[in-house]
């Protein structure tokens, strides 16, 4: 499987290229950047359900931590600590810490499942510089007609791509 690779090092140029690629209806496969470019997500209409899921993880986390605290401190083993009531104001502190832990772990797990990555996975795509400061646009060559390919190369050239390559 061969891919057309355009390398950029300026995000504004990349965004310009993205605009023209969308206008030309190019089959863009992937864009790899060293940092999040939110405008890019908006342009390609990529919406994530992770924020909503994180909210539900938070609700689940806060109720489960509360239930665990209530069970241990009130029902199972009500211990008299300094004359305080067993069901007490110290709960929010532990609930806060617990909810952060549970939400973060669950969200990261969800992200791993959605992106189909896991620790120790072999890289799907390698190119010099993409782990550094280079941004690349990948286009699947098998879906391109020769005219389309020429047009895309023109777009990449016009928007100031550092390098146009094939892998």
């Amino acid at each position: 499987m061969s891919k057309l690779v355009a390398v950029y090092s300026d995000d504004s140029k990349l965004l310009e290229a993205a605009d023209q690629l969308i206008a030309a209806k190019a089959p863009v496969e992937e864009v790899i950047t060293p940092f999040v470019i939110e405008e890019l997500l908006e342009k390609f209409h990529i919406k994530s359900n992770i924020p909503l899921l994180a909210f539900f993880y938070g609700v689940f986390g806060i109720t489960s931590v509360f239930a665990a605290l209530y069970y241990t401190f009130v029902i199972d083993y009500p211990l008299n600590i300094g004359g305080k009531a067993p069901f007490s104001l110290t709960f929010p502190v532990l609930m806060f810490i617990g909810v952060v832990l549970i939400t973060v772990l669950a969200t990261v797990t969800t992200f791993f499942i959605q992106a189909k990555v896991y620790p120790g996975k072999n890289p799907e795509f390698e190119y010099p510089g993409i782990n550094d400061d280079k941004m690349v646009i990948l286009v699947d060559k098998s879906k391109l007609t020769p005219e389309m390919e020429a047009k895309l190369r023109e777009i990449f050239d016009a928007t100031g791509a550092e390098k146009i390559d094939e892998v």
């Binding site: 300094g82 004359g83 305080k84 104001l89 110290t90 929010p92 502190v93």
Partner: peptide
């Protein structure tokens, strides 16, 4: 609000 209230409540 909570840190002041909680500490005073806990210190008693």
């Amino acid at each position: 609000w909570y840190f002041q209230y909680m500490l005073i409540w806990y210190g008693n």
